[in-house]
């Protein structure tokens, strides 16, 4: 008997197409590209602000242009997906015990959405103030 174990090749760049759960995972990871790009947009806005009114108004015009609006919409969708996936896994990363028993994951996730709602209302209110 001779041993000659066969090593099946791994699809380095297309492996995630094999299962729906891998595609969902990659969609979650890709949110980072939008979060990254939008934070850069905010930073560009701050630099433009420091450069004076002309530069800043040009920046605002770009955000309000069609391509700027499409970019914001895509980022909004991915940002909400990021929120959903992040809250969904918190009971795993930070389980809470009370009286020796685990608190149900749905309660932890629900509490996160509740805080999300309050934080969003506060942000919307403060900006308009």
């Amino acid at each position: 008997m001779s041993r000659r174990p066969y090593i099946r090749p791994v699809q380095r760049s297309t492996w995630w197409l094999a299962q729906p759960r891998y595609i969902r995972y990659m969609a979650r990871e890709v949110t980072s590209a939008f979060l990254c790009a939008y934070s850069l947009l905010i930073i560009v806005g701050l630099v433009r602000l420091a450069q004076g009114p002309l530069a800043y108004d040009a920046f605002l015009a770009a955000v309000y242009s069609t391509s700027g609006q499409v970019f914001s919409l895509l980022t909004l969708i991915f940002a909400i997906y990021h929120t959903y996936t992040w809250f969904q896994v918190t009971p795993k990363a930070m389980p809470i015990r009370k009286g020796g028993k685990l608190i149900a994951g749905s309660i932890i996730v629900g509490a996160h959405w509740f805080v999300f709602l309050i934080a969003s209302v506060i942000i919307l209110y403060l900006v308009g103030m």
């Binding site: 979060l35 939008y38 905010i42 806005g45 955000v63 309000y64 700027g68 609006q69 970019f71 914001s72 919409l73 980022t75 909004l76 940002a79 909400i80 990021h82 929120t83 992040w86 809250f87 996160h112 805080v115 999300f116 934080a119 969003s120 942000i123 919307l124 900006v127 308009g128």
Partner: peptide
């Protein structure tokens, strides 16, 4: 990741659509 989960959707909405949708 935690902070952005709580605030980023609202932030993007405010910057991107607060004015264009007539919210502000």
């Amino acid at each position: 990741g935690t902070l952005s989960a709580f605030i980023f959707p609202a932030v993007v909405f405010v910057i991107g659509f607060g004015v264009t949708l007539g919210f502000y």
